[in-house]
């Protein structure tokens, strides 16, 4: 499979910043796939995207889009990419159709082509009804969809989505996910940055996890784990079962129950009467825990199975790497 996005040992340090934003960042994205770039704020996700989208020059390393070097031929790269930044980059005063026509003209389409493409995209992104309304009256999800439509005017080979659902309500997120899936079905390569594990899980074929910098002076701006969502999940222990008991006295018994069911070591947080343990099979574990609790007569206040948080992922990943380093 052809490589659509390639980054090798990218480095970038902002003036006056104590740590480099990127420090040996590597990335390979195959054409036609969705690659998730997962990391907390300050991990260098946006810096990486800005370098790949020719908005920022790297201090070192090399990056190519479709085989074209981002530093040597930025204009060539710009013809092949679409960028959807963290804020919907639209003209708020113009209506949806006028926005698409304006950007179409700036992509050097003829006026006729720009109008025709605008109509097509409004149709594709389900915005026909809102075409004649000013963008300032759009909902968050609609703005994002128009934003996506704008970046798809030339049907670019590679689309960068920088935290496309940050600040959206669940409905808006679902709208954006649907739109992204439709683009991928047409063969667009997508590089998606996100802080949400479930978003990467939902959309990405492969995920790179970026370490956060600054804690101990190193580790920032580098990929610390890379693989399919399944690889990553098995690496970090998958989902977590979380049990909150009604009476603090039940905690030891409840912890024993959870450990028996999950066959792992449970974490007990006595202050909030909560027991957490990793599980492999969500539904089996949930049903077994409910049964065991009833048998032992333990009163549960809450029982859920959830995805690990980004914090837990990082704890797990950095913990693992330290152990590997010691061995």
């Amino acid at each position: 499979m052809a490589t659509a996005v390639l980054a090798e040992a990218l480095r970038k340090r902002y003036p006056a910043a104590p740590h480099p934003a990127l420090d040996g960042f590597d990335l390979t994205v195959s054409a036609g796939t969705v690659h998730g770039l997962l990391g907390p704020n300050g991990a260098g996700k946006t810096t990486a995207v800005r370098i790949l989208a020719t908005l920022l020059r790297p201090d070192g390393g090399r990056a190519e889009i479709d085989g074209i070097d981002v530093v040597a031929d930025p204009v060539g790269v710009r013809r092949r990419i679409g960028l959807v930044g963290q804020y919907a980059a639209l003209d708020e005063i113009l209506d949806g159709h006028a926005n698409l026509v304006m950007f179409g003209r700036l992509f050097h389409l003829s006026t006729t082509d720009a109008r025709r493409r605008a109509d097509e995209l409004l149709e594709q992104f389900d915005l026909v009804a809102a075409a004649d309304r000013a963008v300032s009256s759009y909902s968050g999800g609609m703005r994002r969809r128009l934003d996506l439509a704008t970046s798809m005017i030339l049907a670019p080979a590679v689309l960068f989505l920088d935290e496309p659902t940050t600040g959206l309500d669940p409905r808006g997120r679902a709208e954006v996910w649907t739109a992204v899936r439709a683009l991928v079905a047409q063969g667009t390569t997508v590089l998606l940055t996100t802080q949400y594990l479930d978003e990467a899980d939902q959309l990405a074929d492969r995920i790179s996890v970026l370490a956060t910098g600054g804690h101990d002076g190193d580790g920032g701006g580098r990929v610390i784990a890379e693989g399919t969502p399944d690889d990553l999940r098995s690496h970090i222990g998958g989902d977590r079962v979380e049990l909150v008991v009604r009476h603090g006295a039940d905690l030891p018994a409840a912890a024993a129950v959870v450990e028996a069911v999950t066959a792992t070591v449970a974490q007990v947080d006595a202050d909030v009467r909560r027991i957490t343990a990793p599980v492999t099979d969500r539904m089996t574990a949930l049903a077994a825990t409910v049964r065991a609790l009833a048998e032992h007569g333990i009163d549960a206040e809450d029982l859920t199975v959830r995805r690990p948080t980004l914090d837990e992922v990082f704890l797990q990943l950095t913990g693992t790497t330290t152990q590997e380093a010691r061995a």
Binding site: V75, A89, E92, T150
Partner: peptide, 18 residues
């Protein structure tokens, strides 16, 4: 600049001076 429109312009193959 704050809305990200300037960044979008810069990531497009248009004339930067425009």
């Amino acid at each position: 600049t704050q809305r990200g429109i300037t960044d979008r312009f810069r990531s497009m193959p248009m004339a930067p001076s425009a």
